[in-house]
Structures are given as structure tokens and as C-alpha cells.
Amino acid sequence: MSSPPSPALGELETAVLDVLWSSPTALSVREVLTHVRRRPPLAYTTVLTVLDRLHGKGVVVREKEGKAYHYSPRVTREAWFGERAARALAGAAPGRDEAVLLAFLDSTERVDPQLLDKLSALIAARRGGTAK
């Protein structure tokens, strides 16, 4: 399995992906529908839409067998959660004590909207001056 993309998933998408992870083989939409436990039960078209969306996000792969598509996860459960954890850690705002990290703007800096307006005006004035 290749390096996983890791977009945010909804509750339903996660439930469907869970079914695919639990299966040793690729599953059709109907097979997924029979395995997914939801109250009230899901409609066939709902599962189809969810699988289509997961395919669009690059999370599952599909192959046509006969008239129907069969779906399998693109990444293992471990790789998926590893990637999610890595993204959460990498996406945390940098702290002041992080020794080998330099942020574009100090993440601990308080930015006053009025100051930003003043700076925007300053830049516009400078641009205007240069243009003359």
C-alpha cells in the first residue's frame, strides 16, 4: 500500500472504512451495506455515495468486477491512524521551547486587527508612492 493521503473523514465515512478494513477481500456496495451496523439502517444509495466520496478522497481503491465496483482500503488501519497522529502532531502550533523550529510568524504573537489595518495602509501608501 502506498503512502496514505489523510483527509478528515466524517462519522459515516469512518464506519464504512472500518468495514473495509475488517474484510480480507474487496467488498461490493451491497456487502458493505450488510456489514455496516447503523440504527436506522443505511440505504444502498447512501453507502454508494459514501464509498464514492472515499474514492474521491483517495482513501479507497475500486475495481470493476462484472457490473459492480468492489472497494478496498488504500491504506492499512495502522498506517491511517499513524498518519492521522502525525498530522495532528505536525499541525500543532509551535511552542516557544521547541528548539529546532522557526515559524513564519511567531505563533505566540498576539496580532491586533487594528495594527494589521495600519500595516496594510502603510503598504498601500508605499505602493502608491512607488507607483508615482
Binding site: G95, R96, F104, L105, D106, S107, T108, E109, R110, V111, D112, P113, L115, L116, L119, S120, I123
Partner: peptide, 27 residues
């Protein structure tokens, strides 16, 4: 810098105890 500052201001949850010596004047 100002554009990133604006986006930062939209997600502001800054702890004032962590402000650097330059504070807002850094930007």
C-alpha cells in the same frame, strides 16, 4: 506577513504569558 497575521487573528487563542519580548511590535 499581514495576510498571515490576519488569518492568525481569525484563529487567535494566544496565551499572553507566552508573548515574546517584541510582542505585536515584532510584526
Amino acid at each position: 506577513l499581514v495576510s498571515v497575521g490576519r488569518l492568525r487573528a481569525a484563529h487567535a487563542d494566544t496565551d499572553p504569558a507566552h508573548l515574546g519580548v517584541f510582542g505585536a511590535s515584532g510584526l
